[in-house]
């Protein structure tokens, strides 16, 4: 019962912040890349940043990532940044590098080895999962799954976001 009351209290507190014009601030998203470089999403503030959760075993991810790269090329790499978050664990992690090489992906790819990043912004712990952070470092969209007819919707959303101040 006390938890239900607590939840109700927090829901009431959260209600005004849920409006589209008051997007939630993105938490700290930081981790080591496949190249062992430290990537901090906050460093891309000023650009619209697409965070893509993927794994080697996820077939739709291999379809989603190239389509987001295409959108990035259309809008401009100076306006849109893609950061991929790999969700593979120890058993399949050995395949991550070959998948990146095979697909010629050039974007920074963070290895979320202990699932900490997924816990923060991937509410369903699933792949593909897309989070878009606006230029102010706030979460504009988060969405589970990907199908090919989503490309147009994402292109529209991202174009609009990239024109925001």
């Amino acid at each position: 019962m006390k938890y239900t009351l607590l939840a109700a209290l927090l829901l009431s507190l959260s209600a005004p912040q849920s409006r589209a014009d008051e997007r939630p601030l993105a938490p700290e998203i930081k981790g080591k890349s496949t190249q062992d470089e430290l990537i901090n999403v906050a460093d891309y503030k000023g650009k619209t940043t697409i965070i893509l959760f993927w794994a080697t075993w996820c077939a739709p991810c291999k379809k989603a990532i190239p389509e987001f790269i295409k959108i990035q090329e259309e809008i401009g790499e100076d306006k849109i940044q893609i950061i991929a978050i790999n969700m593979d664990d120890a058993q399949t992690r050995s395949r991550v590098k070959s998948t990146i090489k095979r697909n010629k992906w050039k974007m920074p790819i963070i290895l979320d080895t202990d699932g900490t990043i997924a816990k923060k912004i991937n509410s369903t712990n699933s792949a593909p999962y897309t989070v878009v952070i606006d230029k102010q470092g706030k979460i504009a969209y988060s969405e589970e799954g990907y199908t090919s007819d989503n490309a147009e919707k994402w292109a529209e959303r991202l174009k609009k976001l990239s024109t925001e101040p």
Binding site: D89, A90, D114, G115, T116, K119, N125
Partner: peptide, 24 residues
């Protein structure tokens, strides 16, 4: 720097020594 207090998930190396990563 970062300080975490509460429920944390961790993995050491390739999970041979320690892996506290949730796989629901």
């Amino acid at each position: 720097w970062r300080i975490d207090i509460g429920d944390i998930h961790l993995e050491m190396g390739r999970g041979i020594a320690l892996s506290l990563k949730p796989i629901e």
